[in-house]
Every structure is written in C-alpha cells, then in structure tokens.
Design a protein around this nucleic acid. Structure first.
Lengths: 211, 211
DNA sequence: ACAAAAAACGAACGACCGTCCTATTATTGG
DNA sequence: CCAATAATAGGACGGTCGTTCGTTTTTTGT
C-alpha cells in the first residue's frame, strides 16, 4: 500500500539516501572508486548496515548505475518528450543533456564515466552499462529518425551516424568542463550540435535551426 | 656513453619492460587499476624490486602516462609531420590517431582513459594528464590553423572548435569500439572527420577532401 | 678480476578492502 | 501494545594494497 501513499519504508528511505551519496561520489571518483567504508561514513552508517542493502559491491555499483540512469531519464529524456516529435525534441534532448548533471548536483556524467571504466572489464556491471548505453543510443537514433520522417532532415541522413557524433560532442564537453576547466565548454558543445544538425537539414528547412 | 651506442643499462631495460606492461594494463583497466603486485607478477619480478624503480605508485602512474604520450607522439604526431602542412597533415594526424592503439598493441587509448579517471581527482597525476592533453589539443589547433593559413579552410574557421569536435569523434570511436564492440566504429569516425573537415573547406577547395 | 655500485629479492608492516556472523535496535502490521 | 520482522551495529576474517628495510645478487667500470 505504500506505492499509492508514496510513503517509503525505512529501508527504502535509507537505500535512497545511500544511492544518492553513491551517485555523487561515482560522478567524481568513478564506480571503482566507490567504497563501502567511505560510503558508510558519508551516510553515517556502519559498514555492515550499509552492506546489507546490496549484498555485494557489484550490486551496489549496479544499483548506483541504475539510479544514475533513472535520474538521467527523468531530467533529460522525459522533459524532452513534451517537445513535438522531430527536430524540436532532438534539440530539447541535447539541451537537457548538457545541463542535467548540474541540475542533479553531479560533477561528471555517471554513465559516461562508467562507460570508460567498464569498457574492457567483463562482468555484470559492464553488461548493465552496455545495456543502458545501447538504450540511450537507440533513443537518440529514434529521435533523429523522427526528424527525418518529418522531412526536417534530408532522407539520406544516417541516424546512427548522427547519434555517434552526438555522443562525441557530449564526451568532449565533459572533458573540456572537468579536465580543462573550460567555461566555454557548453558553448562549444552547442555550436557543435548546431553544425551537426545543420548538416542534416532538408533544403526547405535550411537555416531555420535557430530562431 | 650509452646514449650514443644506444645500449641500455640493465636498470633502464627493466624499467622499459615494466612500463610496456604497465601501459598495456592501463589501456585495459585504467591507471587506478594499475597494481604493483599484479605488474610485478606480469613482469616476473618481486614487488619490492619493481617498486624501487619508481618510489611510489603515483610516480609509476605518471611514468606510464609519459610512456603512453611518447608512444602516441611517435606513432601519430611524428609520422604526420612528413605530410605537407595544412589539410593533408591534419588528415594524416586523424588517420594515425584512429589506428595508433592497434599499432601499439593497446586496447584503449591511455590518454583518454586517464583524462576520465583524473577529471576530478586533484594531484600530480591529474596535473600531468592536463598538461599532456593541453599540449595535444594545442597541436591540433596548430594543424587546423595551418590549413586556414593555406587557404584550404575558410578564414572564419574556429580552430579551437574544430579541435574540440575532433576529440569528441575520437572519444565516440573508442566507446563504439570497446563498449559496443562495433566493428564499424572506425568507419563512423572517418565519416565524422570528413563531415567536419568538409564544413571548414574554402569554396575553392570544396569537395576535394577525398580523391 | 675485483671492488664499488646498482638492481632485485624476501619478509614484514599497517591500512583498508569486501564480506560474513551474531547481537541489538527500530519498525511494522494486526 | 505486542509479537514478528526488518534494519542496523559491532566485530572479526582473510586478502590485497602501497611501502619499508635489510640482505643478496647482478651489473658495471677499471
């Protein structure tokens, strides 16, 4: 009866608090940098008390990743759905994508971090990362496809290719922000988005990408 | 007298062997994943024997990073210098960049990995990463600038912006390769390069980017 | 060939890791 | 309010980490 009243049990509440701290920590130091002891201290619990919520470090990592994806979807994908299908929605996705970490009090993007960390480390965590990233990739492809179907993008547009390049722009943006501490990183990313999108625009819509 | 005869002392030889193993390991599991014990086993030495070459794990990480940069320069930047300044050289850099890990028996790009790992981890290693990446970035900017000076790229080309986007393409390529196991990653990266370069071409040179 | 110097080893250290087990405390539903 | 249950704490475990130190082996220059 508590999904209706929205009241969380004590356990669920604690778990949520742990995951919040874990996600923040992972966005800075990565998922391998997550430590039961550190996390316990940060949340004011005992190691064993915290541990009991997950059963293994691997499960903690996966749960943290899932929480990251949930937050990402909530603050990037979901709000974009209120924009009309096609170019507008794609642009909304890109805009939200650039700002979602700041809006969630995160330093880096947990998914991007996890992607690098588990690139070549087989195991359940890697499997989870791959699945999430594939889903995100597909969601981007779909958005691009809608713009094609709308006639906003030329029919020959390679949706997969566009998604590939969008990921690249985001990666570069995070690097500029966090490694180079470049305050113009977002501006660069937006300009790159614009260039990419413009190169896909159908003749009838050319130059309309920015009002 | 051994820089002339090119003969390495025993110590230098061992150190080189260690760094070779360390670099390979780091390209898979990252620099934080580097472990004195593991590395000692892999190279058939004792922990303490290996340790003595560096004095601290941090120094080992930095030395490994430096070795990665050295190899990168040797197999990417240097050979590109034999191409004529400007567009040709930029294209050579991009081509070499895509293949240098394979040519050096590496799984991922150590520098890209390090960039992510030390994004937000202050310390000497991060400082070294930042310096190396800045240098690389600047080297790219210079290459683009030469293409502008040659009149191959339009004068309004934003060299920094192009470098930003080039980094993004490479990032996306590594992710597609290693995380998604996409055998078309390189093809996607090349297409992205082409699009980016084409968008910079001066009118007189338009459409000449590929022979 | 030999003495000096460099390199490598083996064993131990304290710290922290993930995990397990048992007790204690807090929450919950009837 | 009370019994059943869930949540948390405390403490200990085997392991591995980076690092240190004293000793032994190997390399080096003469």
């Amino acid at each position: 009866m508590n999904q209706a009243t929205n009241k969380l049990s004590k356990g669920e509440e604690t778990r949520a608090a742990i995951l919040k701290a874990a996600l923040k920590h992972a966005s800075v130091a990565g998922f391998e940098g997550l430590t039961i002891g550190t996390l316990a201290t940060e949340t004011g619990m005992s190691k064993s008390g915290l541990f009991a919520h997950f059963g293994s470090k691997e499960e903690l990592q996966i749960a943290t990743l899932d929480e990251g994806v949930r937050r990402f979807s909530e603050s990037t994908v979901l709000p974009a759905l209120s924009a009309p299908r096609g170019l507008k929605r794609l642009q909304a996705m890109c805009d939200n994508w650039l700002t979602w970490t700041a809006r969630n009090d995160l330093t880096g993007c947990p998914m991007m971090t996890a992607s690098q960390e588990f690139d070549n480390k087989p195991g359940p965590v890697r499997d989870a990362v791959v699945e999430h990233m594939r889903r995100l990739h597909q969601s981007l492809v779909k958005s691009v496809q809608m713009a094609i179907d709308n006639g906003e993008f030329v029919a020959s547009t390679d949706a997969e290719q566009v998604a590939f390049e969008l990921f690249g722009i985001i990666s570069s943006c995070y690097r500029s922000r966090n490694l180079f501490q470049d305050s113009h990183a977002d501006q660069r990313a937006r300009r790159a988005f614009e260039r990419l999108i413009n190169s896909c625009l159908a003749a009838s819509a050319a130059g309309v990408s920015r009002t």
